[in-house]
Computed example of a mutant assay.
Amino acid sequence: MTLLIVGATGTLGRQVARRAIDEGYKVRCLVRSPKKATFLKEWGAELVKGDLCYPQSLEEALEGVTAVIDAATSRATDSLTIKQVDWDGKVSLIQAAKTAGVERFIFFSILDADKYPNVPLMEIKRCTELYLAESGLNYTILRLAGFMQGLIGQYGIPILENQPVWVTGASSPIAYMDTQDIAKFAIRALNVPEAQKQTFPVVGTRAWSAEEIINICERLSGKSARVTRMPIGLLRGVQGLLRFFQWGWNVADRLAFSEVLASGRALNAPMEEVYTTFDLDKQQTATVETYLQEYFSRIMKKLKELDYEKTKTKKKKEKKTPFKQSSKVNSQ
């Protein structure tokens, strides 16, 4: 089976690619910059240069492909908008996959996307789900909540560096999941008959509020967090202002997602039946506590090593040279 993985250089996509290669699949990755994706080639993947926003580049990428796993999404720093990548690009990919006779299509969506029609990314995910379901392709949709990897930049690093930790509104609890565990579900979906033309939540073992995450980080790091609460009204104002400038559209669309994070409504779902369907063991799923503990154990050990090296270097500099010692003797 030949897989085409789209978005393979991203946080989730690279884990999907790694898992697929480890399980013996022939993996092809659609990349915009082969130079930035050399690590995928080193792992054993075939790289094909292409872009979702250029439909003509998809035909070659899909030649001989059995299944597509779509992990691509726009970034706030991209010059292209969410609509261009997450809607126009995905529609082109789905159409091209159907034309190419692809047998399976795995798509990552967001949990509760249908509950936030005013949030661009959520509404686009909802519409993409519908479009995929009506395309005639044999699909599986996995609805995610949040990545554990994002907790490091949002909470871990700011606390270690004594920088502000930004918290929005009522802080919706989120069932974060390690992207390595999400990748297990994506690859397993390829061979589970019950997953065909179905939609599943794929979330962590429990939902965590921002305050709970901060408390864990404080305990593991031994440092206190500088929590700064951002009023949702202020974010809405900034979002509205940015829409006056074309360069700010993408950032404004991303800021709109703060409505989800500040709603107070948990991003979580029951997973018992999902684990049973996919024949995966919940006990092997990483928890937020174990993930953060592993991170802080590594980083605190590294900081101690750096502090030791710094102290050793300082002591060496403080040692007096023979010249200075002799000068001191002569002066006496």
Rank of each mutant, 00 (worst) to 15 (best):
L3D: 00
L4E: 04
I5N: 05
T9M: 01
G10L: 10
L12D: 08
G13L: 06
R14C: 14
Q15C: 15
V16T: 07
A17S: 11
R18Y: 06
I21V: 11
I21W: 05
E23G: 00
V27Y: 02
L30D: 04
R32M: 07
P34E: 02
K36L: 04
A37E: 12
E42V: 06
G44H: 01
G44Y: 07
G44A: 08
V48Y: 06
V48L: 06
V48A: 04
K49I: 03
Y54N: 14
Y54A: 15
G64D: 07
G64V: 03
V65H: 00
V65P: 02
D70G: 02
T77E: 02
S79W: 12
D86H: 08
G89H: 00
K90G: 02
S92P: 02
Q95V: 13
A96N: 11
K98H: 13
K98M: 00
T99D: 07
A100R: 10
G101R: 03
R104V: 11
I106C: 11
A113H: 07
A113W: 05
K115V: 09
P120V: 02
M122N: 05
K125I: 09
T128K: 01
L132K: 00
S135P: 02
L137M: 10
R143A: 01
R143E: 06
L144C: 00
F147N: 11
Q149N: 10
L151H: 06
I152S: 13
Q154R: 15
Y155P: 01
L160S: 07
L160I: 13
N162H: 15
Q163G: 05
P164S: 14
V165F: 10
W166V: 08
G169R: 00
A170S: 13
I174K: 03
D181E: 05
I187S: 04
N191A: 09
E194F: 04
A195K: 05
K197T: 15
Q198Y: 14
Q198N: 07
F200A: 13
V202Q: 01
V203M: 09
W208N: 03
W208T: 04
A210F: 08
I213A: 15
I216P: 09
C217H: 04
C217D: 06
L220Y: 10
G222V: 13
A225P: 09
R229V: 06
G233E: 07
G240S: 14
F244K: 09
A252S: 10
A252W: 05
R254F: 15
L255V: 00
A256Q: 07
L261K: 03
L261E: 12
A262V: 00
L267T: 02
L267A: 09
E272M: 05
E273K: 06
E273S: 12
T276A: 15
T277A: 01
T277V: 03
Q284Y: 12
T285E: 01
A286C: 11
T287R: 03
E294G: 11
Y295S: 07
Y295W: 12
F296G: 03
I299N: 08
L303D: 02
E305H: 03
E309K: 06
K310F: 01
K310C: 02
K317T: 07
K317N: 01
E318I: 12
K320V: 11
P322W: 04
